[in-house]
Write a protein that binds this DNA or RNA. Structure first.
Length: 735
RNA sequence: GGACGCUUAGCUCAGCUGGUUAGAGCGUUGCGUUUACAUCGCAAAUGUCGGGGGUUCGAAUCCCUCAGCGUCCACCA
């Protein structure tokens, strides 16, 4: 054995041995309830980052622990096509490397290239997951955009539609002009910034707005019904000067108006503001769209047509000033603007015909499942977040004008049913002659003809589904729901509902909440019984890791330098559930040192075993029961309490505590104390000392194996030749 | 605006249901190489446990309050 542990020589060797021997594939046993984790599928548009290493470590740890307990344990790996994110990443790459846009390639070619890109990333990531030591069942590996998932995903869509839980409607949505798609509320983030607040003269009123460029879409002025200042105007029509000549506008009263803000009177632009849209609905106001989907003003803005929003804002304000219609500007107004989560472009609220999931009825059951305790969220404090969000949930816009994703299972008979947006974005469809009756067909299978008029030339909705609509069904689609083959239904019946959903707290709403809603809806069962949430991995100073800050710790580099075991241990040790983890190279080094300590204990034992062999002293295979001295008794007692502690901690998801106890025991009890005190005894060929030492060490290796699988496997093979089974399938101590 | 979390040694954090001199790792300082390991061992130093108030025989630990930091949610023109 080398003086220093060299992970480079051992990690690959053990991984391929485990994989080749099929240890990752559970042996089904109808008498035992399995342990199942569905891996949160990493987005296949880059390579493995430290966040992935985090969940891989935790999930592997749980899987290995249960596997060693003799429970059929399935950890099902996968990859996510990650709709909008991958499209954005790939579009950037295309622009950078070839100077092309997606429109240059055309839809089919773009999809094909994007698939090529995704599959190649996916392959890289799979090997990187192997390097971390992930003992997942590759035979059951899944990919969200695999065509075989079309049927289950479409089935859910069709069922929801038939139950009136999916509907198509013209609603206010978030529009990203850069990505050219609608976004759900969750895909929008807010950024605080300072913008001028303009006070505009509207006849007898002065109105405050940050968006003078939308004034061409104004269809009313609103005041609070109790506002004494404006009471006399309510219900009247005022006439006043504008940039495009004289205009008339109704004055409405609505309680949504805050009397204390600005002048207490507000311009109402139903087409471009969510609050105004709602007011518009209540007062039956015209929705006058003045900003196009390209982020530019349209013909309704007269001479300002074609200007981008930002430019128009400036010019309009200047022109208003010239005409004396601008009373004042508050330059220090701070408010939050909504931006696209993926490309950081400012999002335009727009009224658009899209598809929505009616979430309230789905949320009720999902809330109840957690309230009743059928699903447990760890740490518990996140339950409150979950409840608050679920109780205030809004309908979910699931149609995207992207090319990368699942097409909607919706067909139109003729072009008349397509939305104006879809027609403008798809020139081919616009060119088509409208030769249908307008029927809308929602079906799992592509319909051959219109059931109403028999037309055979149906048009599939060009939109794609929100990526979370498919990943929200991940726990049951991966296990073969609606796959109609024997193995799939066996898997579904045996492994579903799954045991633990382990993921980052940042996707509790995006993903976990939707899985609970859709899982319940589609299968009538909860998708998992426990949700375990881990924190974000940050740098040593608590800063978020990012390429621009240069503080990124790349797990693959770390594995090359210190080994996967050190990385894994450093992601578990000294952390607390659901809290962010601070990681530094120093911490990883500390764990590498621990690996080396562990290695040298093994080396010390091996060395003594060799001395015994040379001297023809029999090496004890079992723990001697007689003639134990106080050191022996003490270490055995400590070992027993360690076994209990680690088991208890793992059962209660206290992984850090388990790791810390192991570290403490192995280094400071076994190495520092027991080994030191046994040295003289070993020199005198004391078989008891070697027997206890070896036994204690081998038992510790078992307990440590889920945390540090490679080194434990390697050392055990060196000091326990008589055992043919590797540690990965060894028996966890019965306590 | 609402919710949640954090504030304990130079740094990163344990201290759960209140009870002897407040702990660990890293770092610092001193000493050390006998059958493993210098990626090591032994030893030492360092804290009015964010401020204030309360409950209690007793509080880092429970309650109230203030402050700072962080995160999430929300349609503040």
């Amino acid at each position: 054995m080398d003086k220093v542990y060299k992970h480079q020589n051992v990690e690959k060797k053990w991984y391929s041995l485990w994989e080749k021997n099929g240890y990752f594939t559970p042996q089904e046993n109808s008498k035992v309830r399995p342990f199942t984790i569905i891996m949160p599928p990493p987005n296949a548009n880059g390579s493995l980052h430290i966040g992935h290493a985090m969940f891989l470590t935790l999930e592997d740890l749980m899987t290995r622990y249960h596997r060693m307990q003799g429970i059929p344990s399935l950890w099902l790996p996968g990859a996510d096509h990650a709709g909008i994110l991958t499209q954005v990443v790939f579009e950037r790459k295309l622009e950078k490397e070839e100077g092309k846009s997606r429109y240059d390639l055309g839809r089919e070619e773009f999809f094909r290239r994007c698939m090529e890109f995704t599959l190649s990333n996916k392959k890289t990531m799979e090997n990187q997951m192997r390097a971390v030591g992930a003992s997942c069942d590759w035979e059951r590996e899944r990919f969200t955009l695999d065509p075989k998932f079309n049927i289950p995903i479409y089935t859910t869509f069709v069922n929801l539609f038939n139950d009136n839980l999916i509907y198509r409607a013209e609603r206010m949505i978030n529009w990203c002009p850069r990505c050219a798609t609608a976004l759900s509320d969750l895909e929008v983030i807010y950024r605080e910034q300072k913008d001028p607040l303009y006070y505009l003269k509207y006849g007898p009123f002065v109105l405050a707005t940050v968006r003078p460029e939308t004034k061409f879409g104004d269809t009313a002025v609103a005041v609070h019904p109790n506002d004494k200042r404006y009471k006399k105007f309510i219900g009247q029509e005022i006439e006043f000067e504008t940039l495009l000549g004289r205009a008339k506008m109704k004055v409405i009263a609505d309680t949504a108006v805050d009397m204390k803000f600005g002048t207490g009177a507000v311009k109402v632009t139903p087409a471009h503001d969510p609050l105004d849209f709602e007011m518009g609905q209540r007062h039956h106001l015209e929705i006058r769209q003045v900003i196009g989907y390209d982020g530019r003003l349209n013909e309704k803005a007269g001479k300002y047509k074609g200007m981008k929003v930002k430019e128009a804002r400036k010019v309009v304000a200047e022109d208003l000033q010239k005409l004396g219609l601008l009373e004042k500007i508050d330059e220090n107004y701070i408010h939050s603007v909504s931006i696209c989560e993926r490309c950081k472009t400012i999002v335009e609220p727009m009224v658009s015909l899209q598809w929505f999931v009616k979430t309230k009825p789905l949320a009720q059951k999902a809330i109840a499942a957690v309230k009743k305790g059928d699903i447990k969220i760890i740490p518990k404090r996140f339950e409150k977040n979950y409840f608050i969000w679920m109780e205030n949930i809004r309908d979910w816009c699931i149609s995207r004008q992207l090319w990368w994703g699942h097409r909607l299972p919706v067909w139109y008979c003729g072009t008349s049913s397509l939305s104006p947006l879809q027609l403008s974005m798809n020139p081919d469809l616009k060119k088509m002659k409208n030769n249908g009756c307008g029927e809308i067909i929602v079906d799992v299978k592509t319909p051959s003809s219109c059931p109403k008029c028999g037309n055979k030339e149906l048009i599939q909705d060009p939109d794609t589904l929100d990526t979370w609509f498919s990943s929200g069904q991940w726990p049951y689609t991966t296990l073969g729901w609606k796959q109609n083959d024997e193995k799939s239904s066996r898997d579904f019946n045996y492994f579903y509902p799954t045991s633990v959903m382990e993921t980052g707290y940042e996707i509790l709403f995006f993903w976990v909440a939707r899985m609970i809603m859709l899982g319940f809806y589609s299968t009538g069962k909860i998708p998992f019984t426990t949700v375990y949430l881990h924190g974000l991995v940050r740098d040593a100073f608590g800063e978020k890791m990012s390429k621009s800050k240069g503080n990124v710790i790349n797990p693959i580099d770390i594995i090359g330098k210190y080994g996967a075991d050190s990385l894994r241990m450093s992601l578990v040790y000294g952390t607390s559930t659901g809290s962010d983890v601070k990681l530094s190279e120093g911490k990883i080094q500390a764990m590498r040192n621990f690996s080396n300590k562990l290695w040298n204990i093994g080396r010390f034992i091996r060395m003594n075993m060799d001395f015994f062999l040379q001297k023809n002293v029999e090496i004890p295979k079992n723990v001697p029961v007689k003639n134990l001295n106080s050191d022996d008794k003490r270490i055995l007692l400590d070992l027993e309490s360690l076994q209990k502690k680690v088991t208890r901690n793992l059962d209660s998801y206290q992984f850090a505590k388990a790791a810390e106890s192991l570290y403490e025991f192995i280094w400071h009890e076994l190495a520092d104390k027991y080994i030191e005190s046994s040295k003289t005894r070993l020199r005198e060929n004391d078989r008891i000392a070697l027997g206890i030492l070896r036994h204690t060490y081998l038992e510790s290796l078992k307990l440590l194996h889920p945390f540090m699988p490679f080194i434990t496997e390697e050392i055990r093979s060196k000091i326990q030749e008589e055992e043919k089974n590797p540690l990965i399938i060894s028996k966890w101590p019965n306590i």
